[in-house]
Design a protein around this nucleic acid. Structure first.
Lengths: 198, 198
DNA sequence: CTAAACTTAGAACCTGGTACTAATATGTAG
DNA sequence: CTACATATTAGTACCAGGTTCTAAGTTTAG
């Protein structure tokens, strides 16, 4: 069997069973263990333990990253129906462990939370948004979001809010949010009382 | 320090960082490595490698498709660079406590995670998104997101992904994501050696 | 004081490798 | 055919992160 083909088979075997040892690969491919190891090196496949470790770290990240908190970021300034500012520091649980870059939904969550918080209504819900991740945000960076209410339509209806997030001087995110607001009404069954942002 | 207390500390340390070696535990608990190992045995805590293996196997069973990245929601189907489906149940911690309506960023997070997971690349990051919350999602509802890759540009570059989220028959969210992707393997830093980690 | 419980030490061994050297096939081009 | 290259196999030394076992101290309680 040609080398190329063997290496393709090796790739496939490991892909469908990452827990296979080199010793077992020798049995399946009928070559010496050294050949297996040379092949792995050429293909850039790490050893069994490293593969397991990577999988373990991956799943560990996943478990840790679930609780996106109520309001993401600390609101440090709030002028209802006008503007607001919040601060959010990117910590380990917010990033991809592989490269330390923040997951987009955390950056979004900060902006979304602020866009909703800045609206003075008993119920405020995001209706739609147009967002742009201007540059990646890294572990340890402090995101400062500023929200500006651009328009309000009546007591009920929609509000438009622009949010810009900065790390230092640099803008990292921008978003245009359309927020549904209601002072008294509900939408089928959901009761509305006093506003519920935190 | 009494034995019981030490074992409680050991449990706690391992729980919050399962990737710790015995050698590091000796430094933290100031006892010999043999004591650490006796403690682990009494507590039924397996060795580091076994812990990693179990985590790896667990995550491998859970979602059999390989590169299920850090995701909000359970991925139940994944065809890389084509489509994917994930399920996410709205629980108490995801809603506004007053009215039981899901916070937008959770619904977004599910869609965003899926849009990133469906892309077959070593690095995939959301560049921008155009999203619409079609109707509110309530406590207890099961969100089913379906992602479709609409275009791919080269090995590197952008991908466009549409995501639709349903509760039952009803569409509750739709989003158009532009995802930055890169198949890049950096040869500058930690290529093969086991140099990098916690 | 003494026995039980606890702690530490050390050596042998294990798995699943890496790193490196060296010998032996098997081609393949001149 | 020879010479050189590539591929394969073999073997040794070494590593991390342990297990197992034996044995010797050290507390502590009765």
């Amino acid at each position: 069997m040609p080398k190329k083909e063997r290496q393709q088979q090796l790739l496939q075997i490991i892909e469908e069973n990452p827990f296979v040892t080199d010793r077992e690969l020798t049995r399946q491919l009928k070559v010496s263990i050294q050949t297996i190891r040379l092949d792995r090196m050429e293909l850039g496949i790490p050893e069994l333990r490293e593969r397991m470790k990577q999988m373990a770290e991956h799943s560990y990240d996943q478990v840790r990253s679930l609780p996106v908190d109520e309001v993401v970021g600390d609101i440090v300034d709030l002028q209802l129906d006008k503007s607001g500012i919040s601060i959010f520091e990117i910590r380990g649980e917010h990033v991809f462990s592989r490269n330390g870059i923040a997951r987009g939904h955390y950056v979004f969550a900060q902006a979304n939370s602020l866009a909703v918080a800045v609206i003075n209504a008993e119920i405020a819900l995001t209706a739609s948004a147009d967002i742009r991740f201007v540059r990646m945000v890294r572990l340890g960076e402090k995101c400062i979001s500023k929200a500006y209410v651009r328009s309000l339509t009546g007591r009920k209806g929609k509000a438009e809010v622009d949010v810009f997030t900065y790390v230092g001087e640099e803008m990292v995110f921008q978003g245009h949010f359309v927020v549904y607001r209601s002072v008294n009404e509900e939408y089928s069954e959901g009761v509305s009382r006093s506003a519920d942002r935190h």
